[in-house]
Design a protein around this nucleic acid. Structure first.
Lengths: 194, 194
DNA sequence: CTAAGATACGGCGGACCCCTCCGCTTAGCA
DNA sequence: TGCTAAGCGGAGGGGTCCGCCGTATCTTAG
């Protein structure tokens, strides 16, 4: 990679990060190019699709989440590990503008896909929780990921999305309906916060 | 309202419904005008904002959902009533392109708001379920609505969004984690499908 | 150190879109 | 039938995305 190319790449990444933080997933690419003092063709060359740019912007963040998953995998309590991971993702997706979009949309292409990377890191946690019997049967990481990004998307224009999103997540984890057959389980079930 | 205005309004509504069904919430207004054989100013005059157009397009559908809620309110089982309503919303939001967007985004303005209308119809069901003790305490209809639209948004580009969405909803209803303290409740809790 | 070749850059042009405004048509009333 | 104002159409300005190509710049071999 040529020196100037690398320079532009890094510059664009920094500018894009700021733009996305401010305007979300559909920040103007043209504006990013302008701010970086670079031709619009250049941003297109480095990031062929908007999704590619988003993934590049969030790469470090995703890596961090995956690393976190790696640590959690060594925790003694499988349920707590999975829950902590989901909370971490939820908080990130709800807090960092554009991240939820990046994780949800465009999981079609091959190459590199942020949500795939996250899935790879999260699946062991799911498996371990399932083996320990603390997860409803048949649940995949994809299910949980979809749920989490959905919650993040829906709370996007809430004030304080972070808290709202984690609140909804905890509802979904413990369930928000009570089966009338076993009313005595109510307290025990809902008393367990994430 | 003048006769020609009304004519155009209805025509635009029909065309818009088709366009939204095909291209989702961000169908081209320009294209709608063109298809209707009408100036772009005309569509803007009848529907000042994109959200207004979406709400108009989905008005009947929302009315139907609200009517359904009215019927369900007379059902003997409060939990089943609420659950049925949520399933109905979920299925609609996940199946009908653009509806989830319309329900989630733009709940800022006053005037008429589709999600408010839905909330008004759904709140009695929530209240009744809460009084019957089959709902986790502190849950509002807004919570459930957000959750449902989030699920719909996240499953949008899934193949067969309807089934995926309702599956995720049922997970959230009964909870996907099991508290290790009471392992015997597992079967009972997850055996109850929506 | 230099010159040739590869590589990346910039920005132009086309297609599309949203939005506003204004002159013209025409429906509806008297 | 004629008047009036409501409604219409579309041009124009600003913005975006995208592909392409002439050119400037970096790199490396000589």
């Amino acid at each position: 990679m040529r020196a100037d190319a690398r320079r532009n790449y890094e510059l664009l990444l920094a500018v894009a990060a700021e733009a996305v933080a401010e305007h979300g997933a559909d920040a103007s690419l043209e504006q990013i190019a302008r701010t970086a003092g670079v031709g619009s063709g250049t941003v297109r060359r480095h990031f062929p699709t908007r999704h590619a740019l988003l993934e590049a912007v969030f790469r470090e963040r995703i890596d961090a989440l995956c690393a976190h998953a790696g640590e959690l995998a060594r925790r003694p309590d499988p349920r707590a590990a999975l829950v902590d991971f989901l909370i971490a993702i939820t908080r990130a997706a709800a807090t960092i503008r554009g991240l939820a979009e990046a994780l949800n949309r465009g999981r079609t292409e091959g190459v590199y896909c942020a949500s795939d990377q996250l899935a790879e890191a999260g699946e062991p946690l799911v498996r371990r929780a399932a083996e320990a019997g603390v997860l409803a049967p048949g649940i995949t990481f994809a299910d949980l990921s979809t749920l989490v990004t959905g919650i993040a998307l829906a709370t996007e224009n809430d004030r304080d999305p972070g808290t709202t999103a984690t609140r909804l997540l905890s509802l979904a984890m413990t369930g928000f309906t009570v089966t009338p057959q076993e009313p005595h389980t109510t307290q025990a079930t809902f008393g367990t916060r994430a």
